[in-house]
């Protein structure tokens, strides 16, 4: 699919959103833009409350808890993820985002709780079974398979390969045709992610950003329905971030459900349809991206709820006024000395 990530800047996204309620046909093609519009329109009327029911949930989480010794890493009462939308999962370090990812994909088993995908219970499934159902994930620390080539990395993602069974592997006739088709699909994806020139290089020789791209492309080889990205932009330079953002949006436009963990709020505001905020293992807020920065619980979680608690309100005002006065005085100082310097050099 020829999708150029360049047009997907923050502004492009805004303008698209603006045209959505009017029902204006996007030039990108009505079929491709369809799922995005559906998800956004569906989420428009959903109230911004924790545990709110979504019109068309792909993943439903109920009463999931996971403790490590005395520490409760995850304790989510109810969470629904809208199908075909991009859901951002944010929260301070140690909030339990990655642990929740691990639980949902079978990499970790919870102490209690159930969760389902398309109404199918996912509890007790092992990671490869979850992946076969169409829920594929990436990792916070990129897991490129270093001593395999880029193309081999991609081919590994393909599902239902006949040649992966031991006995059929010995009879190339049973898998050669499928391998050829998979290779073509892999090359298409590599071209889209601009990695096609690197196809015969070892994945271990790629840069950090290219590995992120490869990992995402490899996940797409499995033709997933839900893509879970654990910090896809971490450690990636700003130019590549834009390209990655474009790819994530493309996933939504192809009808996939995307859940991603991210720390960069600009990124989250830019691409997500819905944002879930976690802190200390709990979901403390969810809502449209714009609702989150004003949410008191979120601000408290990031900055500390009681960092100013011992002070009374009068005290707080007084300290604030003093601070501001001091700041003003300092700034005027700087400006006047600045002016003095200019005068001297100007004449």
């Amino acid at each position: 699919m020829p999708a150029d990530p360049a047009p997907h800047g923050a502004h492009a996204a805004r303008s698209e959103e603006a045209t959505v309620p009017a029902g204006g046909a996007a030039p990108a093609g009505a079929t491709r833009a369809q799922p995005q519009r559906v998800a956004q329109a569906a989420l428009r009327d959903v109230p911004w409350e924790v545990g709110v029911a979504k019109p068309d949930p792909a993943i439903v989480v109920d009463h999931v808890t996971r403790t490590f010794g005395g520490l409760t890493a995850v304790s989510v009462d109810h969470l629904e993820i809208q199908r075909g939308g991009i859901t951002g999962l944010i929260g301070p370090n140690g909030a339990g985002k990655t642990t929740l990812f691990n639980l949902l994909t079978g990499f970790d088993q919870p102490n209690t709780g159930t969760w389902s995908f398309n109404g199918r219970d996912l509890g007790k499934l092992s990671p490869h079974q979850v992946a076969r159902l169409g829920v594929v994930r990436t990792f916070q620390l990129t897991k490129a398979l270093s001593r395999l080539t880029v193309l081999q990395n991609m081919l590994l993602g393909a599902q239902g390969q006949r040649g992966e069974s031991f006995l059929r592997a010995l009879v190339p006739g049973t898998w050669k045709a499928q391998e050829k088709a998979n290779t073509e699909r892999a090359m298409d994806l590599l071209r889209r992610f601009k990695l096609d020139a690197k196809k015969d290089d070892f994945a271990g020789s790629l840069s950090g950003g290219q590995r992120k791209l490869l990992e995402m492309a490899r996940a797409l080889m499995s033709e997933p329905q839900v893509v879970m990205l654990d910090e896809p932009m971490a450690g990636v330079n700003p130019a590549l971030t834009q390209s990655l953002l474009g790819h994530v949006k493309d996933l939504r436009e192809e009808g996939m459900t995307v859940i991603f963990v991210e720390h960069d709020m600009d990124v989250v505001r830019d691409i997500s349809d819905w944002v879930v905020v976690m802190a200390a293992g709990k979901v403390i807020a969810e809502g449209a991206p714009d609702s989150i920065s004003q949410n008191k619980a979120v601000v408290d979680a990031y900055l500390g709820a009681h960092h100013d608690a011992p002070l009374s309100e009068e005290e707080e005002d007084r300290f604030l006024a003093e601070d501001q006065a001091a700041e003003r005085a300092r700034r005027e100082d700087v400006i006047s000395s600045d002016r003095g310097r200019k005068r001297r050099t100007g004449r």
């Binding site: 992946a131 270093s146 590994l156 040649g163």
Partner: peptide, 21 residues
């Protein structure tokens, strides 16, 4: 064969291979 590819991938990183089904 693809079997060998999976096995070599396991050598590199088991969890990545699990996440691919």
């Amino acid at each position: 064969s693809p079997w060998g590819r999976v096995v070599k991938a396991i050598r590199e990183d088991e969890d990545a291979v699990r996440s691919l089904g």
